[in-house]
Design a protein around this nucleic acid. Structure first.
Lengths: 230, 230
DNA sequence: GTCTATAGCGAGATAGAC
DNA sequence: GTCTATCTCGCTATAGAC
């Protein structure tokens, strides 16, 4: 898979005379710092001052750029969600189109759904790795759960449509349950807590994201396939 | 399965002359309120004052009882971990003993591991339901992950020993990976965010905890069993 | 656009009264 | 043991200077 684009690049080229505009570099540094801190300690565990200090920027700037601490949090979440989910959706579409009138393969669908996340976590860009942790935190919080719906529901509907093509005999409720289990496993993998490494006394190395996700895809491809046999 | 004992009961009977001792009722109210609030908003999203207000107790008491806000958090986490994990461990032991020299069944082992959690979440006691959410939050946070190790590692070692008896051909690394996926799915189920209900437009009802966990056990029993065929 | 200074508030914790 | 009062600190946010 192609590496993910740099979600943090400014969308417009900076003008040669950078006279009165927000510095894109500073804005990016604020987002990057907020991403790292929020992913580690959650929304309430981070102060705007810590973000500003890590970003090497004046305390007033995060609020000036994003209106409020919550606005900053939303901006961090939004920034990479777009590019990540476009890649995932395009991948699923490609699998379905390639299959043509035949049934697409379950494993190919799940791999398309997962691959951009895997590459994000395996990326040399720490920003992407932090973002994975942030999504994991948001997904298991009751308070911010609606952010997941807002940004991810369309993609998941697409995933389920593709799975219905692959497994037309499967009952819809069973597909939803299996998706629920999948997203739990996916989320914990994204959280990247290192817990499985400690538990296995080093027999398992979860910092190898590609290995981790290959186990995930294999395990769930089998599980989804078996649903159709009920 | 028998209902879980009341983890919030005082361990010693209150003396008839309750002269100079901490009021067990107040202490319990503080723990219950903290449990509810921490499970919803996490450690940093809750103030001691909010806890005291919900518990209908003076602001100074939580700190007097537990030393600090962090001490309160630890006490909340610790209180039910003991009783929950004793029930889970005893259940696994019973499955292994009952099997005798035969291989225990994978599904029976997983059911024993899960059943007390399922009953906690299905309980009429809101405290147990809040506790499930709290564990889910802690498990996917990087910062508090060591609390999971402290309280849960022994139980998980026991689970893995039982699974090795059931699946002697399975490679150890594969068992660890499958456990990782299981705990992710379990954790999201414990978080009980209602997301799957909304996503399925009401086709799935996750507030029926027993239904949710029965899907989980069935799905993972198959998956673990297939590991041994690799 | 950036930075300084500060308003205004609420946090965690505790000394001392009861 | 419980409660009152308060200390001290750091927070978010913003008005106004540059």
């Amino acid at each position: 898979m192609a590496p993910l684009p740099d979600a943090s690049a400014p969308t417009e080229a900076a003008p040669a005379k950078a006279a009165q505009k927000v510095s894109p570099q500073r804005r990016k540094r604020v987002l990057d710092a907020a991403e790292e801190l929020f992913s580690q300690r959650g929304f309430y565990g981070v102060t705007v001052r810590q973000v500003a200090e890590m970003a090497k920027v004046d305390v007033a700037l995060p609020n000036y750029y994003f209106g409020s601490k919550r606005g900053l949090f939303d901006a961090v979440f939004h920034r990479r969600a777009e590019v990540l989910n476009r890649a995932r959706g395009d991948g699923i579409d490609a699998v379905v189109v390639t299959a043509g009138t035949a049934r697409p393969k379950v494993e190919a669908i799940l791999d398309a759904f997962i691959a951009p996340v895997r590459e994000a976590q395996a990326s040399s860009d720490p920003g992407w790795r932090n973002y994975c942790r942030l999504v994991a935190q948001v997904n298991s919080s009751a308070e911010f759960a609606e952010m997941m719906s807002t940004h991810f529901d369309d993609l998941i509907e697409k995933l389920l449509r593709a799975l219905r093509l692959a497994l037309p005999q499967a009952k819809d409720t069973e597909l939803y349950w299996a998706y629920h289990l999948l997203t739990g496993a996916l989320t914990l993998t994204m959280a990247n807590t290192g817990r499985i490494d400690r538990l296995s006394h080093g027999k398992v190395h979860s910092e190898n994201a590609r290995d981790a996700y290959s186990h995930l895809v294999t395990f769930f491809a089998r599980g989804f396939t078996e649903i159709a046999n009920d």
